[in-house]
Amino acid sequence: MNLSRRQALALGGAVVTVSLVPIDFAMAASDEATKEAINAFTGGADIADGGVKLTTPEIAENGNTVPISVSAPGAVSIMIIATRNPNPGVVTFNFGAMAKPAAATRIRLAGTQNVIAVAKMADGTFRKTSNAVKVTIGGCGG
């Protein structure tokens, strides 16, 4: 459906119960764990914002399989972090000289959260971007 839920809300003016119920976050990683995961990748170096394009669904129909793609011109590696998964690390892509610094995969998200992409550039600097992904918990489909 091309109509997003937000548009549906605006259009209908009625209540669309999009239940974005946070699921059991007792298991979710701490902000500290996210920092640690990023530091392990960057060695604690500063990270500039921008220069990384992360494509994620605004609303994922099911957290089990969320298609994502990422690209960062000039990058040699890109790490994907899911800030509220039990473990924040998702995957790290490494690009050789023949590869375009871009990749797509499908990931698991344990609820609504921010997904971060950190890119290591050829010159050793780091860049990042972050996307919010809502994960719906439905009664039937999800």
């Binding site: 459906m1 839920r5 549906a8 669309v16 119960t17 999009v18 239940s19 974005l20 129909e61 099911n62 089990n64 399989t65 719906t136 918990i137 439905g138 009664g139 039937c140 489909g141 999800g142």
Partner: peptide, 20 residues
């Protein structure tokens, strides 16, 4: 929508279906 689920017509032309 029924909660977060977008209700279909319940058609079965796509079955067996791979569910995420």
């Amino acid at each position: 929508y029924i909660r977060a689920d977008h209700l279909s017509q319940g058609q079965i032309n796509g079955f067996p279906a791979y569910r995420l």
